[in-house]
């Protein structure tokens, strides 16, 4: 699970959310900050905490729950969402203990080399990832008024430069639809945006277009559709760079700013 905050304020929000997701999904969650967010001074909205929000401790069984169960299996998918119930060590004298193995195992955490059971286990994890995609933060989509505009995908600390680039492009009569990806695994909103655009720029601050590769691999999206725009000289990405590249491709002319 990955969360992509755009600034320190969202780092704050996502860090709290990461705990909820990690306990709900029983898996590590990475909050993908970067050097720009981590080391530079930022002006952000005030950090806020809603006292109404509750920690999500996930599916954890207590002793009284176990007492009422005949059949506890650490990897039994009883809710059909791919996430199984767990216990903390030391919960109940007779029930609930299990062995977290480094090997293939059955629904009761017992060692097995049965191929069918192993396939079932791995297939359950696909379901769990699907559940995860419904729980993680949605992308922020910002559509222009012009039909048929090209799309732009960006994430993380690229935000400020991207919004400035959009203004520059608008001033030069270029409209673009924006999608800021905020999490992985990708949810249906992400796929819908990609489906609805013929050409999409993927703006990234790494040499290898890692997000573009991830989108291609996860969604079977063709390489031609996703145009890579990368910046990797080590400084924070600049609006002028993004605007220039998109303008040149969209208008087939050089942008002089």
């Amino acid at each position: 699970m990955l969360l992509f905050p755009e600034d320190p304020q969202e780092c704050f929000e996502f860090s709290a959310e990461a705990f909820n997701l990690a306990e709900r999904l029983q898996t590590p969650v990475f909050v993908i900050s970067d050097l720009d967010i981590g080391m530079n001074d930022w002006v952000t909205d005030k950090f806020e905490w809603d006292d109404e929000q509750k920690y999500d401790r996930g599916k954890v069984l207590k002793a009284e729950d176990l007492d009422q169960m005949d059949n506890f299996g650490r990897y039994l998918d009883v809710d059909d969402d791919g996430i199984c119930y767990r216990t903390y060590p030391g919960t109940h004298p007779e029930k609930g203990a299990f062995f977290t193995r480094g090997t293939s195992h059955d629904e009761y955490a017992r060692y097995t080399e049965n191929g069918d059971i192993n396939e079932q286990t791995l297939t359950r994890l696909v379901k769990k990832f699907r559940t995860a995609s419904e729980l993680v933060p949605n992308p922020i989509i910002n559509l222009s008024e012009k039909q048929g505009s090209s799309g732009v995908i960006f994430y993380g600390s690229t935000s400020a430069a991207m919004y400035e680039a959009k203004d520059i492009l608008n001033e030069n009569n270029i409209e673009v639809d924006l999608m800021r990806i905020r999490s992985f695994p990708f949810n249906l909103d992400v796929w819908e945006f990609i489906e609805n655009h013929d050409l999409i720029y993927v703006i990234e601050q790494n040499r290898d277009s890692q997000m573009r590769t991830l989108i291609m691999a996860e969604g079977g999206i063709s390489a031609e559709k996703l145009r890579s725009l990368v910046w990797f000289n080590g400084d924070p990405i600049q609006a002028k760079f993004i605007a220039k590249k998109i303008y040149e491709r969209e208008s087939q002319q050089t942008l002089i700013t």
């Binding site: 216990t87 060590p89 030391g90 007779e94 203990a97 299990f98 062995f99 977290t100 193995r101 480094g102 090997t103 060692y111």
Partner: peptide, 15 residues
């Protein structure tokens, strides 16, 4: 080895 003693205990085989 932890699989071969104390079946009633929690076990964790890490990296």
């Amino acid at each position: 080895a932890p699989a071969y003693f104390l079946n009633a205990s929690h076990g964790f085989n890490s990296v």
